[in-house]
Nucleic acid binder design. Sequence first.
DNA 1: ACTTAATCGAGACGGTACGTCACGTCTTTGC
DNA 2: GCAAAGACGTGACGTACCGTCTCGATTAAGT
Lengths: 196, 196, 196, 196
Amino acid sequence: MTDSTASRRRGDDLERAIFEAALEELAEVGYANLRMEAIAARAKAGKASLYKRWPDRAHLIRAAARHKATEVDTPFEPSGDVRADMERVMRRITENQGGPAGEALRGWVGELRASSEEAEEIRDAIEQPRIRVFAKIFEIGIANGTVRPEALHPRIVNLAPSLLTQHFLMKGRPATEAVIGEILDQIVMPLITAGR
Amino acid sequence: MTDSTASRRRGDDLERAIFEAALEELAEVGYANLRMEAIAARAKAGKASLYKRWPDRAHLIRAAARHKATEVDTPFEPSGDVRADMERVMRRITENQGGPAGEALRGWVGELRASSEEAEEIRDAIEQPRIRVFAKIFEIGIANGTVRPEALHPRIVNLAPSLLTQHFLMKGRPATEAVIGEILDQIVMPLITAGR
Amino acid sequence: MTDSTASRRRGDDLERAIFEAALEELAEVGYANLRMEAIAARAKAGKASLYKRWPDRAHLIRAAARHKATEVDTPFEPSGDVRADMERVMRRITENQGGPAGEALRGWVGELRASSEEAEEIRDAIEQPRIRVFAKIFEIGIANGTVRPEALHPRIVNLAPSLLTQHFLMKGRPATEAVIGEILDQIVMPLITAGR
Amino acid sequence: MTDSTASRRRGDDLERAIFEAALEELAEVGYANLRMEAIAARAKAGKASLYKRWPDRAHLIRAAARHKATEVDTPFEPSGDVRADMERVMRRITENQGGPAGEALRGWVGELRASSEEAEEIRDAIEQPRIRVFAKIFEIGIANGTVRPEALHPRIVNLAPSLLTQHFLMKGRPATEAVIGEILDQIVMPLITAGR
DNA sequence: ACTTAATCGAGACGGTACGTCACGTCTTTGC
DNA sequence: GCAAAGACGTGACGTACCGTCTCGATTAAGT
């Protein structure tokens, strides 16, 4: 259909093809060894078509990761069990880190300078959704009395994802389920549990 | 005239000069824009002298950062006040992140692949000393009854530095004192404090 | 408002506009720096409109030069004074070389390969008219006894224009009047003059 | 010898290799289709090594042609027979035009703009030696009475080579021996011959 | 006057070559 | 005998045009 008779790709069609190629390359060689020429070649596109859309590697990969993310964004449905819900979300985060988004994050961190609103923007794109989800989980917990109301502080809400990010960046691979369990049982749960 | 007599540097002398040049470059342009040629030029050394000692940028910078670290390693003397001691150490860590070691870390993260004992080695070089210091602080706290004995779990001992690292990597700059205070008062202290 | 009503040009109208644009570009940047995109842009035409008509730069410019030539082709009226007539024609040739036709010739020479009937065709288009004119001048001279009959050999008839062409190509600009005078007095006239 | 064990070529060695590669490419594809990358590849050199030495294609080829020229510069020994000597020199010129120098000339003409001392310099490098040789031949002819003294005017001395150049540039290939004969017998000899 | 098919402008597209830059290796030269 | 200096082969960079191709908008010709 889109391929056999397929006249030349343009606009969104082409953009999607480039994203796919970029993510495949990213997965294969990693951010540090990513070559614009390789992406262009794999996408059967001219380099100019890449540079017309994004000023550099960082922007391209950011856009590609964003594209991938929105594509598979299954909304999260909390069950009411705070620990189980957190575990589920954390597992999802680590799965995501194992994919292209993880590589993209790694590259982004490496190129970061004290700089720019850019940085803030990207960071928010990563953190805000997570904060929202955890806040929701916490609120339910507070409602049914299993979570202390004071736990709703942003730093605590963001604690679990922060530790996952730290683990991923420093260890080079996402946290295992065992690690997720430890984070929950030794750090997060004790901190937010009501009563005592 | 420091120039005419100044016989050609060799061995450690030369190595020190290269380290200095590397760290200055690192501070000025950041890891991502670091050029071996620039380091060699600034050190008034041949590129071959660099490659003879370290196989690549990553190793050079790691060695340079290590060199810098050992140079200024003031041993930590705990006061007995757990919170104050942690704050002091955390401040020291953030100061360190603001320097070349921070840039080096950034670069190391960016080039990391699931790979290698290398990674493990570097990570340990960073984490182990911190864990030792915090363990020491915790032990004193346990001894005088201000800290719960269960807090001595490695993941909790390493919690404060982990959050500093995460903050540094994601925000692009070290945590401020205010942030350190929040981490302590909302997360670490509640978690380790004995009694309740 | 020349813009709202300004209907879209087609056919010969468009062709003329392209020719003008091409010649202006040629005059401004020279054959070697001529860009099809620049011509299209100046003519406010699409590139496809150019390539639909001519397969490449060389053909376009040739056509443009030809168009220009036919446009201003004042027929030559010999006076009977052989030297004066030749001088007049030669002056006209150098004037022509100073314009777009000169640049076109330059480009054509540069792209020439041992190749093709193309080459022959273009060359003839340039030389034949000149030969005809000079032959006419010579015939009048022979008739009134000022020119040797043997001078009617093609190589001699074409001598003056050949020297002008050589001068233009090698020197980068058309011959001056002084040069024309020298060519006539030292070379052509002695060679063709009857009697002695 | 220079190739098997051959450590990396540098300086003149490398330069010679580049010249050879350039001239071979020139012969194969012509000036208009000459690619710096192709020359570099054929010379097994980096493009940077080319651009370090010459700012562009034109300069490289000029230098290569000059190199070739000086390499094979057999000095001319006049026999005293004016016509025979001229014929010999003219044959040599046409042979030269059939080689890389001819292609170089073609390219140089194509890129020429009213411009520059550059142009003058190259032209002189081509014309001066020829003028010197023909002047020598003429002088001998004058000495033995076969050539008119007035023939020593530069424009006449340069006449034969000029016509060869014109022929080469306009026809795309060097003059044949027959053409050389015609030029001599119908134009040059009648013009310079003493007596009649 | 109203379609209908052609033609146009605009410019996106897959390519190729450009000229530059930094890499990591290697050679030379001076100390 | 090692160091500085930097030339070298390599290969990716980001840019500029090429010649081809879509895409609507416009327009002349046929109904």
